[in-house]
Design a protein around this nucleic acid. Structure first.
Lengths: 251, 251
DNA sequence: CGCCTATTTGATCTGATTCAAACAATGTGG
DNA sequence: CCACATTGTTTGAATCAGATCAAATAGGCG
């Protein structure tokens, strides 16, 4: 079993993610590697779990982007979070049997499914990993709070700059950004549904950010031209992400 | 030590709250009763923990109302949640050492403080209680999500009706509502800061709800005149609260 | 090419904010 | 018991950020 370092397996994605929020011992890494994972390829725009479901497994995202969302009675959508490789978007189903929202792919994705029972056993044998997963769900909640601040109290352009900073830093934390560039396959409609804005207004606000020389965003690709400026425009302070250590070149 | 049944101790508040989200065995109740709690009386409008703090203990609310919040750079406030007796508003500090937001009292409060170490020991000895506390933080996050839907996608009156339903049901779940009435010592400014609205607009929207015959809200006191109507006006479905069982008279 | 989805632009409208002031309730000290 | 301060609620008028409606443009792809 000698896999090249840069080849990412399902386990690697998860381990990399967990390392981004806390150090892992060798034993813990070994325990994680023993998790039984069932890989799967999923098309874009497919629900992975739906509101009302009672999942018996969790989904580890290995490649691609997914979001969590809920629909209102009149069909409007609120997106709660964007997820990047290594995330377990439905980890909560471990302790909340009935899903109160849905999870869907934004792009074609590679995923890995792990039975609840396997996670429960892992956390029994390795309580520190249990605490770490708990910590992960707490960071999840911290991100919800930060989005609430944006939706409730910040202007459209500020919100958008903020979420660009966030997605970039989270990708960077798991090694999926080069310098100040990263994939960003999220449409303007999706940004709007995440930030409580109309597509039209997202478009106009993005033009502001572009013409201010802060970003270069096109075709699923984000280039940050002025990181300090973008952070300022988004009132962004990464503390709420509770990252293990901030990437040196992008503080 | 024979306390009358209706006299609420610090431990009772916590046990009642945990029972509202999951059944507890006798052993578990006994273990909870052994938690070392330090009682305290706190004035209204006082910070209990602040953004940036590194608490070594958690705060169990025993009497009164507290909220969690964050301020933006220009001094606007976003409130994330309202907390009622039995809640542990800063439970997350157990696994996220640095607070990313603040907690403050809305009314004079009775609180009880418990060292992190005591909770850690309890969860080691009694993993089911650990899972239950984890579950509690997950419900917390579910409430954040529901508020996001409101702030991002619902009208002012709908949001307000929704939060009234929520606070009422949560009070009811811990035995602090009589029929369709409960304390509601939250000011219109605070409602606005929670729902991303101006005080003026909260006031006007409340008048709508009153003149529709749905509620009677005045001087820190909420009467629900038409529960079905209020639920409808607030697009309220209690599933996201993940309560142990819905109160029979208020489904 | 034609189809589909995403982005962009223009024009108009509105829910909610802001500013300003009055009003009501509660509490305080003399 | 009253003057006074404080905090919360209510009202009115003007304004604005962002929504809505409608349509054009631009990519990507079988």
């Amino acid at each position: 079993m000698t896999a090249p370092v840069d080849q990412r397996t399902e386990h690697d994605a998860l381990i990399r993610k967990l390392r981004s929020i806390s150090p892992l011992s060798d034993d813990e890494v070994q325990a994680l590697r023993r998790l039984p994972l069932a890989g799967a390829q999923i098309d874009a725009d497919k629900d992975i779990v739906r509101e009302g479901d009672r999942p018996s497994q969790c989904c580890i995202l290995v490649e691609g982007f997914v979001c969590r969302y809920k629909l209102t009675e009149d069909g409007r959508r609120q997106i709660f979070s964007f997820h990047t490789p290594g995330d377990i978007p439905d980890l909560q189903s471990l302790h909340l049997p009935v899903m109160d929202h849905s999870v869907k792919t934004l792009t074609p994705c590679k995923a890995a499914f792990v039975p609840h029972e396997a996670i429960a056993e892992l956390t029994r044998r390795c309580p520190r990993i249990g605490d770490l997963l708990w910590r992960d769900t707490l960071i999840d909640a911290a991100i919800f709070r930060e989005w609430m601040v944006g939706i409730g109290r910040r202007s459209a352009a500020t919100r958008i700059a903020h979420v660009l900073c966030e997605v970039f830093l989270r990708l960077k934390a798991v090694g999926l950004a080069n310098g100040f560039e990263c994939e960003f396959p999220i449409t303007q409609t999706e940004i709007g549904d995440a930030l409580g804005l109309s597509t039209v207004h997202v478009n106009r606000s993005l033009q502001e950010l572009r013409s201010s020389g802060l970003i270069d965003l096109r075709r699923g690709f984000l280039g940050i031209l002025d990181w300090q400026g973008l952070k300022k425009a988004g009132e962004f302070d990464s503390a709420y992400l509770h990252l293990n250590r901030e990437p040196s070149d992008a503080a």
